[in-house]
Design a protein around this nucleic acid. Structure first.
Lengths: 217, 217
DNA sequence: TAGATTGTTAATCGATTAACAATC
DNA sequence: TAGATTGTTAATCGATTAACAATC
């Protein structure tokens, strides 16, 4: 009867759970108490069936004729998505993207603390970005280890990405967020999530070219 | 026998095609002439079967025992992904992320030109970011129309995202890149691609917590 | 009660992988 | 020729959707 094995939720579902969480937070802030699968589906461009199916992965039940209690839903989603945990991040690459991430307030609000910003350019080292001082890549390995960095954010030029990933993995970082457009090799115990902005633009460009031209007015 | 209908390639395949393109460009620059599906698969963390299946969507054939000619593959992928076209973009929101995008060189290199940067904050209007002057949101609609903006990039606070999207759609923009964490409603003729960085971090955090702890050394 | 909405099962759909004949 | 690699078909796998009994 020992069925309490922590259920592994598929990545496709996890991505939607983050959307439900954001929505639940908004509804909660607006004082809404109950939400149905149908309403959530409309808000997020899904079917109600998908929403209900997704929420069965949670240790949380809706109520017939009322839907899901917003506050409870928010709490459960937050916990499943690691809301209780604070994650330590190191951002590598202090270019435009790296600096933007270092300054982005939304991260700390969600429990992701940036505890170091690194670059290989000697001219940048020592400069301040928000509350952080840019440090040398040489310092990355030792610091990631002593500061117990959980997540390495890779925002360097693509050519340097793999070597930075290797340094981070050797420093026992637990996961990588890859903002470059090259694939990173990492051991299976170190998950990698890719955020490919240029690829997203190309995907969008392709989708656009499939849409028949609209009339001139 | 009229089978030359422009095949609609699934989005899942398009995302990988962008990866093949990047890889082909790197190989081409390195002077490599041929690449097999097996090699591409290893480089990108896929199976050779997936690679071959994907490439059948292209008007391009490999050769038994040799693989795919890198230069040709690169050319065909570039064309399919809109490499011949130059896309006009407006970036809305001149916060950290918006500014980083405006300064990011990789976009223009890939055929995505930023022709305007907009913000609602009066204190920011008139300031220069790279070659661009920050303009008022009031100017967005008219300018998007007259400058024939193809793609609107939404990098404003989440609460303002939908209204910005509405302005862009009304100004006949053809597609939206959404960098906020809320879902955007848009007509089906205006494709929306979402780049959700915080959601990616949460996905990563969840993946990390599934990995059993490694021994202390 | 009547009816709306859940949780769940079964059906459908699409994407990935395996397998192999064709071929260079 | 022998053998490696393609293009393609069929099998598998997983994700989404439809349907509906249970229930509040």
């Amino acid at each position: 009867m020992m069925s309490d094995v922590p259920q592994s939720i598929p990545a496709s579902v996890i991505r939607r759970l983050t959307a439900y969480l954001t929505r639940a937070q908004t509804l909660c802030a607006a004082g809404v108490e109950w939400v149905s699968s149908q309403e959530l589906a409309e808000d997020l461009g899904l079917t109600s069936s998908t929403v209900r199916q997704d929420l069965t992965h949670l240790d949380f039940c809706g109520i017939s004729r009322r839907g899901y209690q917003v506050a409870g839903l928010q709490a459960v989603l937050s916990r499943v998505l690691g809301g209780d945990t604070v994650w330590n991040m190191a951002v590598v690459g202090a270019g435009n993207i790296g600096k933007a991430l270092a300054l982005h307030r939304e991260f700390s609000r969600r429990g992701f603390t940036i505890c170091g910003l690194f670059d290989s350019d000697p001219k940048k080292i020592g400069k301040k970005v928000g509350g952080l001082t840019i440090q040398s890549i040489q310092a990355l390995g030792p610091l990631a280890r002593t500061r117990r960095v959980d997540i390495g954010v890779i925002a360097v030029p693509s050519a340097a990405a793999q070597s930075v990933a290797d340094i981070l993995v050797a420093a026992r970082v637990r996961g990588l967020l890859n903002l470059t457009h090259v694939h990173l090799a990492a051991p299976r115990s170190v998950p990698v999530v890719e955020v490919r902005i240029v690829a997203s633009l190309q995907e969008l460009a392709h989708a656009i070219s499939l849409v028949p031209c609209r009339p001139a007015r």
